[in-house]
Structure formats: C-alpha cells, structure tokens
C-alpha cells in the first residue's frame, strides 16, 4: 500500500478538520492507515463465511437445547438436555452408527483395494492417458444421477445389471436395492463405481514420484516384484494413499444423496445410516431440536477426522 504522508498536507487537513464530516473523514483515514492491508482483502470473504458458517454452527448448538416449533407464532421452548438424553435412548442412533461404519468401511476397503490395484496395473502401460481420461467420467456424474442410474441398472424388470446377475446365476431375487440383505452393499457398489477412479488418479500421481532407477536397482539386486513393491514403491506412494483414504473417508461420512435417491433408508431400515436418519428426523418428522443434537454429534465426529486431514495435508505441502 502506498505510504502517503498526510502531515505533508496541513492546509487541507486543517480546512477539513473544521466540519464534522471532515473530522469523520480524518478519523476514517487514520483507521484505514492503521489497519493492515490484508484486512481489507480478507474482509468480504471473512464476513460472508462468518455469517454462513459460524452462525449456523452456534445455532445448531442452541437448537439442540430447544424444542423448535415450526408453526408460525409459536415460540421455541427451552428443554435443557432432553434432546441429548433422548439420543442415548433412541435405538435408531446406534443402528445408524453401525450402518454408517459398515458402509464407510466396505467402501474404503473396496475403493482403496481396487484403486491401488488398477493404478499399479495401468502405470506406464500403453494407453495410460486414455484410461485416465475415461476414469474421470464417473467422478463428474452428479450423485443424484448415479442414484437414479443404478436404480434402473438394478431394476428387476428393466435393469441390465439385474439381467447380468440373473444370466450369470448370481442373484435372481429382484433388485439388490429392495432386499434388506443387499441394499447397503448395492449402495457401496455405486459409490465404488463413482469414486474408485479418483483413487486411481491420485495413486497414479503418486507413482510418478517413484524414481525409476531405484526400482531398477532393486530388481538388479534380485528382489522379486512383491519385495520391490513393498520396499520401494509403497513408501513413495503412501502419502498419496493416505490423502485418498482421508478424502474418501470424510465424504462417505457426509453425503447421503445416493441413499436418499435410491432407498431413502429402507428397505426395513437396512440403509438408515446416521446421516440418513438425521435427514428423516429433520425433514420428515420435523424434530429439529433432536436432529440438531444428532447433527452436532456427527459434525463433531467428522471435525475430529478433519483435524487429522488438515495436519496431514499441511504436512504434505510442507507449509506452516
């Protein structure tokens, strides 16, 4: 910021100082000068972020101690810890956590396993560029479309994947999504379809950092493929795998679009993961106070993961 010496213009200052407006102008100017430049650059984003993130955060906590009445004119009632206590007696909540854990764990294992495997296979293969182009397609597809698309693919009378499962003699009982035994796994499959490609691309990027001569040297020493992988390649791509893991982990904890489109928590509560239960509690039963308590718990759990991610990413970049 240019450093203008206002003391060098005494005549103007004296003249302006005589009127109230002039004094105000001077006051503003001296404040402007004392505030570091970055405040002005940061202020618009900061203010908007504060209104749309910090306020809702505290409002969420506030609501968890209230009985929120949506009907106009009815005031919210303070209920103390009722919502929090109720949470411990609601059997849907441990059920939701368990389902969420199963969903996240299954997705992570499948996506990381497949992703790392395919990345290793196509690394330096002919047509690698083509593959990485094709693999970006599913990531671009809106989760809503993924949900509807797989709903039709698995549809017992019109779906080609249901047809395939019948033809191969694997499953002929109808749609995987309407069977409580398989519904959650069908959603895992959808998520795996959409996001394994991201893991492939991340791991591929990591593989580019492995020095080729180190691998050659290891082969020369007589190490076999597996030894080379575990001793040379893996340490180089571990940061990439950690990042892929954390990103997918958090997103799987957060998003419910696919469940909301395909099963809405059913059949027989088989896909009522905690965030899905939270959605139903809020927008179907309108128990906003209770939902706020659950929402805060979920937020808190994910923020804990978030701290780990932030530290990892910052360490990865070597910043701060």
């Amino acid at each position: 910021m240019p450093n203008i010496d206002y003391a060098a213009e005494p005549a103007v200052a004296r003249e302006k100082g005589t009127s109230v407006g002039g004094r105000l102008g001077l006051l503003c100017r001296s404040i402007t000068e004392r505030v570091p430049w970055y405040v002005w650059w940061l202020a618009p984003a900061f203010i908007i972020l504060a209104v749309i993130t910090i306020f809702p955060f505290f409002w969420l906590i506030y609501m968890s101690f209230m009985k929120i009445q949506l009907a106009p004119g009815k005031p919210d009632l303070f209920v103390g810890l009722e919502n929090w206590v109720d949470m411990f007696f609601d059997p849907s909540i441990p059920h939701g956590w368990i389902l969420l854990a199963q969903y996240v764990a299954a997705s992570m294992v499948l996506q990381l396993g497949l992703g790392i495997g395919i990345a290793l296979l196509i690394n330096n293969m002919k047509g690698e560029g083509f593959f990485s182009t094709v693999f970006l397609i599913p990531m671009m597809v809106a989760p809503v479309v993924v949900g509807h698309l797989w709903n039709l693919l698995l549809n017992s009378s019109y779906g080609i994947y249901a047809w395939l499962l019948k033809t191969l003699g694997i499953y002929a009982k109808g749609s995987l999504l309407s069977d409580p035994q398989t519904a959650l796994w069908a959603i895992v499959a959808m998520d795996t379809w959409e996001w394994t490609p991201l893991i492939i691309l991340i791991v591929l990027a990591g593989l580019k950092s492995v020095p080729k001569d180190t691998i050659e040297a290891a082969h020369m020493d007589g190490s076999n493929r597996f030894q080379v992988f575990f001793n040379v390649t893996l340490p180089y791509i571990t940061p990439a795998i950690v990042i892929a893991f954390l990103l997918r982990f958090m997103d799987n904890m957060r998003f419910i679009d696919k469940i909301l489109i395909t099963t809405k928590g059913g059949p027989a509560e088989a896909t009522k993961t905690l965030p899905m239960y939270l959605f139903l509690k809020t927008f179907r039963q309108f128990e906003i106070g209770a939902a706020a308590a659950i929402g805060f718990t979920l937020l808190f759990a994910i923020i804990i993961c978030g701290i780990i991610v932030t530290n990892t990413i910052l360490k990865e970049r070597g910043a701060e």
């Binding site: 972020l49 749309i52 993130t53 910090i54 306020f55 809702p56 955060f57 409002w59 969420l60 609501m63 929120i68 958090m250 904890m253 957060r254 998003f255 419910i256 965030p275 939270l278 959605f279 809020t282 906003i288 939902a291 706020a292 929402g295 805060f296 979920l298 937020l299 994910i302 923020i303 993961c305 978030g306 701290i307 991610v309 932030t310 990413i313 910052l314 701060e320």
Partner: peptide
Amino acid sequence: KKHFYFWVISTRMAPPVAVMVPLYVL
C-alpha cells in the same frame, strides 16, 4: 492464520444434512 485455515477447511468437512438444519432456520 492457521486457525483461519482450519476454519476454512472444516467447512468443507461439514455434513450437508447437519448444516442444512440451521441454514434452513437462518
């Protein structure tokens, strides 16, 4: 600055369903 970063990145981790409740009221 570090706290600001944490704030920024934590908004990317918030579950939309949980955020939706207070946003709806706001």
